[in-house]
Computed example of a mutant assay.
Amino acid sequence: MTHPVVDPVALTQALIRCPSVTPAEGGALALLDEVLSAAGFTVHRVTFSAPGTPDVQNLYARFGSDAPHLVFAGHTDVVPPGEIARWKHDPFGGVIDDGEVHGRGACDMKGGVACSVAAAIEFIAENPGFPGSIGFLITGDEEGPAINGTVKLLEWAHARGERFDHCILGEPTNPLALGDMIKIGRRGSLTGRLVVHGQQGHVAYPHLADNPIPGMLRLLGALIDEPLDAGTAHFAPSNLEVTTVDVGNPASNVIPAEARATFNIRFNDIWTPESLEAELRRRVGAAAGGALRYDLRFEPTNATAFVTEPGPFVAMTAAAIEAATGRRPTLSTTGGTSDARFIKDYCPVLEFGLVGQTMHQVDERAAVADIRRLTAIYKHVLASYFAPDGTSVAQP
């Protein structure tokens, strides 16, 4: 088979022109299906559903049938563009201006997807007998509730007998310049909602009322006054942030009936959601002392902390990055959550993609030069991973 040459910049532009705002497919997966199928990949488009959530289309593709199997992961869904009039260019135009591709998803993360696809196709064309398989896990639900996306796509693939040895997730990991950072893990996320109940009344007659606000301040103090931990080898200390405190009271002469607060914890690998919830309930219960009436509940979470311990796979990727950029990337676990939290249950995963300075912003964009360099980095990784001389990190 003669494999087509795929220009990663042109593919980035084409993907941006697909209006795939979560949960809409927008033509992005259909485009990847066409490109990968033409290159000899076996492609599956699968849709997942769940009550109360929108249906989501996803894509799984594989070239080869043997181990080792290196899979690239990513998403083609994007956040809404907001007020389009504020954009310099059409957010779904994929315009190149001053050496940058403009549009929603340019860096988060249609550019990263385009680079991995172009790199894989070029590598296969140049190494038709390489020892192993290359796969793609592409979802349309990363920017949404993440219910009908990667987590179910992984389950579907595993049930079919698919096994992965390592994964690269092309999220925009670099803070300032390509080569700055590899993400080798992510913090977990847990959201809590606290309500303190009182008795509404007149401020001039406090003995006939029960103000919940002092109690709320006491409970929040118990949550934030003592650090949760001091951090670990790969993680900063866990942090709890109170994100809203509200009594819904427009009157200055009325004691409110209740006070409500929401908080979120980004936690490290000391904690599980269950152990963290238990500790927070302990703190609140001790501070309440049986004198306060309150409710504390936690939102369900699928975001747990994890780390891919540095080893040959991470070192190989870092070497490819340094060879292309002259920078030795920092190994980090900072930032929010990503689909790596699901992938880590199936194989070691790291994240490396484009510069993320403009992700989710008006005039989101990615440098053309970075798109080409990232493609070269991914191709270098493939060449090292499938080294025919037995030095591959995937060798037993």
Rank of each mutant, 00 (worst) to 15 (best):
Ala376Val: 05
Ala119Ser: 07
Ala120Leu: 12
Arg45Glu: 15
Ser338Tyr: 11
Ala387Val: 15
Ala278Pro: 12
Phe342Asp: 05
Gly161Arg: 04
Leu190Val: 08
Leu374Val: 05
Pro237Thr: 07
Ile16Glu: 00
His207Gly: 13
Leu11Met: 10
Phe298Leu: 02
Pro175Trp: 13
Val21His: 05
Asp97Gly: 00
Ala318Asn: 12
Glu142His: 01
Pro300Thr: 02
Pro256Thr: 10
Thr308His: 01
His197Gln: 15
Thr12Lys: 04
Asp108Met: 01
Glu143Trp: 01
Arg266Phe: 14
Ala67Asn: 00
Pro128Gly: 02
Leu354Tyr: 06
Pro310Leu: 15
Ala324Tyr: 02
Pro81Phe: 09
Gly290Asp: 15
Asp90Tyr: 02
Asn264Ala: 09
Glu25Pro: 00
Ala177Trp: 00
Thr243Gln: 13
Asp389Val: 15
Ser252Arg: 13
Ala318Cys: 08
Ala10Tyr: 04
Gly161Leu: 12
Val95Pro: 00
Arg163Lys: 14
Ser338Arg: 12
Phe235Ser: 07
Leu194Cys: 11
Gly74Arg: 02
Gly111Leu: 08
Thr22Pro: 07
Asp210Leu: 14
Ala259Phe: 06
Arg193Ala: 04
Ala319Tyr: 01
Ala39Lys: 00
His197Cys: 04
Gln357Phe: 02
Ala125Pro: 00
Gly192Cys: 09
Phe313Ser: 08
Ala73Cys: 14
Thr47Val: 04
Asp180Asn: 05
Lys344Tyr: 01
Val362Cys: 09
Leu382Val: 07
Leu11Pro: 03
Glu258Pro: 01
Leu350Pro: 05
Gly201Met: 14
Gly52Leu: 02
Val307Glu: 01
Ala394Cys: 10
Thr173Asn: 03
Gly135Tyr: 09
Leu292Gln: 05
